[in-house]
Amino acid sequence: MNETTGGIEDDEGSGIVKKFMFVNRKAPYGTIYALEGLEVVLISAAFDQDVSMAFLDDGVYQLVKGQHTKALAVKNFSPTYRALEGYDIEKLYVERESLEMRGLNADDLLVPVEVLSSAAMGDLMKTQDVVIGF
């Protein structure tokens, strides 16, 4: 068994493909949820599932450009969102209302995303098998 991933080798080839959505609603740095959430997303890539990420509320702040954390002495994990494509995690959805409420738009984000209305986001959530919120 692989100590880091918890034995993913055993599970590959199980043949089940589910729709996983990771819903990010919290800002980075103030709490650990965004960072540890991202760790789950990266691991999920090894399971050949249909993975997407949704960003709502303060979760949109995870994606804003220009994060510099040196003075906090904590890791700036924002470049990881750009690396997700390399893990075949390409479905990043952001709720438009959450952006607008915060005076942001898609150009303020460090990675290409699909901006969805609240209604479209709700419709998309409804189609998922497993929804994990951070």
Binding site: E3, G6, G7, I8, I16, F20, I43, A46, D129
Partner: peptide, 20 residues
């Protein structure tokens, strides 16, 4: 164990309920 155990639970279980 690893985080893979969570993803695997999501795959194998009929429902995954999160408390936090």
């Amino acid at each position: 164990s690893g985080l893979g155990q969570l993803v695997e639970a999501g795959i194998q279980a009929d429902r995954l309920v999160v408390f936090g």
